[in-house]
Design a protein around this nucleic acid. Sequence first.
DNA 1: TATCACCTCGAACAAATGATCAATTTATGT
DNA 2: ACATAAATTGATCATTTGTTCGAGGTGATA
Lengths: 320, 320
Amino acid sequence: MNPIFDHQRLLYRISRDYYINQMTQQEIAKRLGLSRIKVSRLLEQARREMIVSITLNAPLGLMADVEETLEKKFGLQEVLIVHCENSAQAAGLEVELAPAAAECLLRRITGEETISVAMGRTMVAVVNALPPRSLPGVSIVQMNGGLGYIVPFEQSTELARQMAARLAASHHLLHAPGIAADKQAADLFKKDPLISSTLNIAAHADIAILSIGSMVPQEKIAQGHSPLTENDYNDLVSLHAVGDIALRYINADGHPLHTSLDERIIGLSFAELMAIPCVIAVAGGEEKHQVILAGLKSGIPNVLVTDQNTAEFLLNAGGE
Amino acid sequence: MNPIFDHQRLLYRISRDYYINQMTQQEIAKRLGLSRIKVSRLLEQARREMIVSITLNAPLGLMADVEETLEKKFGLQEVLIVHCENSAQAAGLEVELAPAAAECLLRRITGEETISVAMGRTMVAVVNALPPRSLPGVSIVQMNGGLGYIVPFEQSTELARQMAARLAASHHLLHAPGIAADKQAADLFKKDPLISSTLNIAAHADIAILSIGSMVPQEKIAQGHSPLTENDYNDLVSLHAVGDIALRYINADGHPLHTSLDERIIGLSFAELMAIPCVIAVAGGEEKHQVILAGLKSGIPNVLVTDQNTAEFLLNAGGE
DNA sequence: TATCACCTCGAACAAATGATCAATTTATGT
DNA sequence: ACATAAATTGATCATTTGTTCGAGGTGATA
């Protein structure tokens, strides 16, 4: 009987007592006449030598490896990939992403934080996916004025209000348009004590939840179905904008674009968004692939909730 | 996306970070926005739900499961099963058992203990299997007088001396026969200050190492090839003796047998053997199966080193 | 809607584990 | 045989982990 076999036998024995029989290192040491510290070291060796192997059984349909790769690639805290039915189309996709986003948001709420919320269809879906809770210490803060080119802009305000209601939380609303008519008007709004203080609160939120938007087709602008003017649109196109994060337009590198539009926005600035420690971005769909990539490059989002097609695109997209 | 999937996803995610990526529970908690304690509980759940599975890869030829079963069945600290070439025959078997016994003994020595040793072929093999060490704080104590019916009984003393030499340890020797001619002679030996103190030291040893012996065939007695008289033999047979542990004869239930022989023995008593916290029994071979079973029932051994055939026999033998 | 049983939560504590260090032992080359 | 380098050892300390407890919340039932 050679000594290395004896050693292997010991490694196995200790591993079994520790991992299977749930004994403490102290107990094992006493039983086998070793020092506690030596048991610790032998266990480490057993793991190295693969005498102990730990395997994970992933739930079916979970793209855990892709999630992890994307987290590392873009320096994110967390990526949630939702296996969507029809992820090619954005229409309806947000409803599929919303529950995962809601779970993620809820999980990150302990009961005392301030949460900035954006607006849009995705955010509506997220709010609808939130189960009722009693979180009186939480504040929901609107981080952009409303965009009401068809329905009044108070719809965005209503979104934040509803979210607060679901969570039985307090709220800070922004009674202002998301985009003012001109810089003067915007500055005037921002000087309003209530608006200014709300924006300040939003800027110092613990968590932000928002979506990422792609460029709307030119026809929509022409038809007036957008808060952007044709000038705005042309400016953005000339700067190679690919879309926006909370109304802040960015190019493919994720850099913010300073246009006249940018100055008319009543909402958090690019830098303010960047400073929020946990920004949850909820977005998916074929036509948003490029913006989402750009959005991640911007460094603003810390968490991404998306669909599997977008995830795959991001996986293959040129490096960070 | 249903909530239980979200939960599974979370369990998996946490398990991966913890078990694969070696993150601490604190780090995971911070990253995913949970309390540290909750991560701990989710990990526990993940183990319960087999999302985490820990497997051990046993070295080839290791009968770890049998070892464990025997430990539980007989309340032993440790069982070492050696895969012997020719375990049917006792001749030469002790040489195969010895290295494992030596490893076990050595492992249990920290450097300050007292070790009582028995005698016999098996013990000689164990001593020969011991690698040289420098353990000046260790005491080797002879726990039985010598049996020298052919060679002088000092051979046993020599065994203890050699063992002490291998370990560079001090020794306490017993210059007395293992079995005295009659009770008076035995009592006289035991009154000797040196012998009495040595026996006392042996009785309070931290570790004892001994073998288990089966009944010798009657012819050997008749031929005088045994320290036992024919009367002794007949007494033992009438009491259904199956063999001895360190000269203390026992029946199939492991109970000690009080005969005139018992009173003539110079060595540790049954009760003294029982009191030693770690008794390592080294024994194997077909003809010893019944004694070894009885020996384990006696409750004296805490560790058993044996061969695979004996182990299998013990496995199937009637319960403890 | 009120009440009760059950659950979940995190804080505080206790236990278990891992990391660092100095001292010793072991192996190796001269 | 001796010196030096490398490896091992256990003590001590810091970190990590598990347990217990009371508070608060949830849901079922009357």
